[in-house]
């Protein structure tokens, strides 16, 4: 379906009571190269999340025994750090905010495109606390370099001039280098919009950015992933 040469395979806990939805999620994540463990109610989900070590978890909001919000709150209160993606049929902004407040790292409304789910779970994995490393000041992707302090971007030593928004767009892509990022993710994280501007505005911005970073070079870095979004080659 999309790229499966996973460089970063993860163990994902899926807590979802609807069996069909759970196998669909499992299929999507396994195809993306991850391994999946499932729990079909809130109590069992919380138990698994506490007793085993997962890289990420996908939590449905409406669950029997214990709803997703409570589960996540209890898990976080007990010191659990596994990054979580909240999944819900309730897609409006207030619900999103509630989910994030309960300790979720991301929120996805049903129905969702498989690519969207895969991309977001992938993005979660990179949020894992990376030990005692010094805060990152320079991002690298191939021969592309971004200095976050001087706000300078170079490719193969050649300076690239970016507008502020293009800089933020590229920063997000570089932080998620090698991963697929979707248009919705870009809208939410780069533009901070929780609505759909409908026109292919994001595509146009990405192609402008691509023109700046790829035009004068043989090897393109910014790829379009059909039916999913974009990937900056790591």
């Amino acid at each position: 379906m999309f790229d499966t040469d996973q460089e970063n395979p993860m163990r994902v806990l899926v807590i979802e009571d609807d069996a069909e939805m759970a196998s669909f999620i499992e299929k999507v994540l396994v195809e993306a190269g991850h391994s999946v463990d499932k729990a079909n109610d809130g109590e069992r989900g919380l138990e698994k999340a506490r007793s085993e070590d997962f890289d990420a978890m996908v939590v449905d909001r409406m669950l029997p025994e214990k709803d997703g919000l409570t589960l996540l709150k209890e898990f976080r209160d007990a010191g659990g750090t596994t990054p979580a993606l909240f999944l819900s049929a309730l897609g409006d902004v207030q619900n999103k905010v509630q989910g994030l407040k309960a300790g979720a790292e991301d929120y996805l409304a049903k129905p969702f495109a498989p690519a969207e789910l895969a991309a977001r779970v992938e993005a979660l994995g990179r949020r894992q606390p990376s030990g005692q490393e010094a805060p990152v000041t320079v991002l690298k992707a191939g021969d592309l370099e971004m200095n976050l302090l001087t706000r300078k971007v170079t490719r193969a030593g050649k300076k690239i001039d970016l507008q502020p928004r293009e800089f933020r767009l590229l920063e997000f892509l570089m932080r998620h280098a090698g991963q697929v990022v979707t248009r919705t993710m870009l809208l939410e994280k780069v533009w901070d919009y929780n609505f759909d501007p409908q026109t292919n505005v994001i595509d146009v911005h990405v192609s402008r950015l691509r023109a700046k970073i790829d035009k004068d070079f043989d090897e393109p870095l910014l790829h379009t992933v059909r039916g999913a979004g974009y990937r900056l080659q790591g």
Binding site: R165, W191, P197, T199, N200, V201, V204, H205, R208
Partner: peptide, 10 residues
């Protein structure tokens, strides 16, 4: 202004 910036390229 943000939306102008967002839509202008389109």
């Amino acid at each position: 202004e943000e939306l102008a910036e967002l839509f202008e390229p389109a």
